[in-house]
């Protein structure tokens, strides 16, 4: 089981890092969200994996899971949401101010392939509006 969870954390980290390194804002936001999942699961797993042990005081319970990582991760999830929201709005603001969604505010980066059909249209529509 531990192998499985470690692999899950690893895959989410790798995917998150890769997306964070992309050139457009939306994939970067997705990447950071993914990284947040990975970090949360990682922190949670620091309390070791427990099946069937509650974190609620109960005289009938056979044992308890570690409640501390849970408490930490609970707030981390909410903060991660706040950060994602902040980032995506920042991306919107950047697009509105700079006219594009490249992380550096470039209209079209030279190392990107020629835009697809849809993007060409979006750009022309934008210039009309």
């Amino acid at each position: 089981m531990e192998w499985l969870i470690a692999s899950v954390i690893a895959v989410m980290t790798g995917c998150g890092v890769y997306l964070t390194l992309r050139a457009r804002t939306f994939p970067v936001v997705l990447g950071l969200t993914m990284l947040a999942y990975a970090v949360n699961v990682f922190l949670f797993a620091m309390g070791r994996l427990q099946v069937g042990f509650p974190a609620v005081i109960d005289p009938a319970a056979a044992g308890y899971t570690d409640p501390l990582p849970q408490a930490l991760v609970l707030t981390a999830i909410v903060i991660a949401f706040g950060m994602t929201a902040f980032l995506i709005v920042l991306a919107l603001k950047a697009r509105s101010e700079l006219g594009n969604d490249h992380v550096d505010g470039l209209h079209r980066s030279e190392d990107e392939r020629k835009a697809t059909r849809h993007n060409t249209k979006t750009d022309s529509e934008r210039s009309e509006s």
Binding site: R22, A23, R24, T25, F26, P27, V29, L30, T84, A85, I88, V89, A91, L92, R95, D101, R108, S109, D111, E112, R113, A115, T116, H118, N119, T122
Partner: peptide, 17 residues
């Protein structure tokens, strides 16, 4: 939230070269 935001962003990401 992301769906709402996506409405205002390009629907596609251009390929990097």
């Amino acid at each position: 939230l992301l769906l709402l935001a996506l409405f205002f962003l390009p629907q596609h990401t251009p390929q990097e070269r």
